[in-house]
Design a protein around this nucleic acid. Structure first.
Lengths: 199, 199
DNA sequence: GTATTCTCTGACCGTACGGTCAAAAATCTG
DNA sequence: CAGATTTTTGACCGTACGGTCAGAGAATAC
């Protein structure tokens, strides 16, 4: 009977080797498609073709086309938070915001495909819940301020928001001009941020 | 014979009253549709339905569906550059960057529909040529620096880029939380920018 | 070697899309 | 009023989409 896996994590049985392989392949192919030709190019037929199989086979491994792109999205996001999270935790509290900005820009500049997919996903999946993306950084700023024993200062939400947008812009520019020095830009941003936060 | 107008500006004859009216209506309807339900909702059928006419009628006034959304896009952009442009020209050179940021945020915060359409358009039309959006602001920063008689300082491109991204983020937040004080955020951003530029 | 389970194909379905066109309706002109 | 012109309809075309399904082929178990 065998059950196209409706939910990937819901262990009835561990996934077979082939299943693992196909899933990974389809996710990678989808990331590439979205990165190179935009979200609209991630159609069932194109994903299948790019993977060298038929639509039916894709839907055998994933419950729907949306599930495929959701999986791709998840993989990219997981990599981001893992990388940035590690960098932040490795830094002393008063350096955490700087570490956050640095790694965020670094991670995305090193992975153009991921960056493009995230940008694409923002608006499409992002419609209902664009999420409070500023919250983690705002918390880091709060902590850093306390670690330095400073007065409240300007609204952390606004500071985090501004910084987040600036990161996007830097990464975006790097995407369309590979010669742009995103690292240097990140350092400029960090300077501005620290001046404003711990001025 | 009468000629569905392929190009709007190419005067063979000035547009009739009805033509004017319909064009305006279709553009407004399209802005609303994109703003409320995303770029994908701006299909020929939906635009026609929202305007109370048929697809054929829409294509009588515009050469294609893309022409309709392009026109909507153009209208929104024109309003933006006119408004911001006026504000910038009214300001002394050393205040121009601040005026730019202030009016940009103000304009978009006052027109959520326009803001949403611009955001949507960024990625879809934006695919081939996302344009050097930072250039105007970078020029203003250069001028302001000269007006104050200062040393070169940090890269204007990066400064403008960062500021542009920050503006997007502020406007975006305002979009999803109408209670967010975008004006105050703009002032914070201006402070940061001026500190970095004329430190 | 047979039976069972997993993987995949290819034909098919319904829907929505952008766009075309002849002819009807509305409007303008004399 | 009639005649020409502008505007609109509604049927239609081809394409691509996401998704379903019976059954063919492979792999695995016994």
């Amino acid at each position: 009977m065998a059950a196209r896996r409706t939910t990937p994590g819901a262990e009835d049985r561990p996934l077979s080797f082939i299943e693992q392989t196909r899933r990974t392949q389809l996710i990678e192919v989808t990331i590439r498609l979205v990165a190179e030709h935009g979200y609209a190019a991630a159609s069932l037929a194109r994903i299948a073709q790019a993977a060298g199989i038929t639509k039916g086979a894709v839907l055998y491994h994933f419950a729907s086309k949306d599930a495929v792109v959701a999986a791709a999205h998840a993989r990219v996001l997981d990599a981001l938070v893992a990388d940035v999270g590690a960098a932040v935790e490795a830094a002393p509290a008063d350096q955490a915001p700087a570490a956050y900005v640095r790694r965020m820009v670094g991670h995305l500049a090193e992975r153009p495909d991921h960056a493009r997919l995230i940008v694409e996903a923002m608006l499409h999946h992002g419609r209902p819940a664009p999420e409070a993306r500023w919250k983690p950084l705002a918390a880091l700023l709060q902590n850093a301020r306390e670690a330095r024993g400073l007065d409240p200062g300007p609204d952390p939400r606004t500071l985090a928001l501004i910084t987040g947008g600036a990161i996007d812009a830097i990464v975006g520019e790097r995407l369309r001009d590979a010669a742009y020095d995103a690292g240097a830009a990140a350092e400029s941003l960090i300077e501005m941020l620290e001046a404003a936060a711990f001025g």
